[in-house]
Simulated assay, not measured.
Amino acid sequence: MTAPLRRWLTPVVAVLAALVVFVGPLPASAAPAPPKPSGHDSQPTLLNDVIEAKNRDFVKAEAALKKSQKRQRELELEVSRLQRELNALAPQVNEIAAQSYRSGRIGAVSMLLEARTPDSFVQRAGALDELNMVNAKQLAEVNAAKARVQQAKLAVDTEVRDQQRLRNNINRDRAAAEKALDLVGGTGLTGGLVNATSPVARVAPGRTADGDWRSESCSQPDPTTSGCVTPRTLHMYKEVKRAGFTRFVGCYRSGGPYEHPKGRACDWSLQNSGFRSWYNNDTRMYGNNLTAFLVRNADRLGIYYVIWNRQIWFPATGWKSYSGPSNHTDHVHVSLL
């Protein structure tokens, strides 16, 4: 028996008393897409890359927003200028209306009929025609100014609305990616080398109507040893394997007061056989992605706590620093309720 295997057979260190109190599983977000874990042919998106991409998008959105705001200020100045033009034209419009009233159809006919000589008739006709041209021009300018004001306002409203929507969406996506990374241990635990999504586990047996989990005995053969596991532990084991994590694992072991001798815990190695601390991106990502799968599906699997890479996670408290005889850099420990 190798030294790493003997190390796995030692009792699990006592969980800090302050963290042992657990009031029941809290909902854990499970992503809908089921990418394969590290080590397969597919190349799933890493959360670290997602966050970087969202930050790049945010920088571009900020630049676009500033450009839009500059254009907005220009349009606002144009709106102000056109409004001043409208204000200046308003008295002229009133005068035009008065003139139109005074020189309306009947007034114009009367104006022409009052001409006593052919010359005065021509002069009066020319004056009336000129007045009508001035009226038409002034009214056209007023209408054009109004149209320009309305178009400028519409452009401002549309541009600002689009830029605000874009910035809000990017902020939401960035916050979601950062929250997703925090859920699985953050940069400190994972180095950002963790898949953005995990497969969705099937719900474990033993869930009660009020959301609690029924107590289970060590009644099922342990597929990793000659011992036993609970039905919920066996379900978790099968779901982790189904998700593609197929390296060495050990569950039951005798002795000790904690979950292994009760058939409620498994240690998932980073190696195909034995135990060795992570030493490259492959082994670290394997541990990160396995941990992420367990944490994201904690509510569906009935998980009590997870230990990985000097950190311990409870559904009720999240990630905390962990120290003990094993620093859990060579395997992911999971205990079931």
Rank of each mutant, 00 (worst) to 15 (best):
L82S: 01
V306I: 01
F314C: 01
P223K: 02
G263W: 08
L193K: 07
D282A: 02
N280C: 06
A204R: 02
Q123K: 10
R172E: 15
S326H: 12
I303D: 02
M1Y: 06
P261K: 10
N168T: 04
P35R: 12
V122N: 03
Q72R: 01
P34R: 05
E239S: 02
S103F: 05
T224E: 13
K238D: 15
S217Q: 10
V23W: 06
K66L: 03
E114M: 01
N327H: 09
R161S: 15
A316D: 14
A30R: 05
R242W: 06
A64C: 01
A61G: 11
C251S: 01
L270H: 04
L112P: 04
A88H: 08
E78C: 02
A176P: 12
Q163A: 13
A17K: 05
A201L: 06
A18G: 15
F293P: 00
L113E: 12
P315A: 00
S226M: 05
W213L: 04
L166S: 00
W313S: 01
R242E: 14
V160G: 00
N55I: 14
R207Q: 14
F314M: 11
T225G: 11
V229Y: 02
I170C: 08
L294C: 12
Y322E: 03
G287L: 03
L47A: 04
V200T: 15
A31W: 13
P223A: 00
K262Y: 13
L270R: 03
L19R: 08
K137W: 05
P315R: 00
A152G: 08
F293K: 04
A140E: 14
S80G: 07
K60S: 14
T233G: 00
D129E: 13
L77K: 12
Q69A: 09
E130W: 10
I170A: 03
E159Y: 03
N272C: 11
A17G: 12
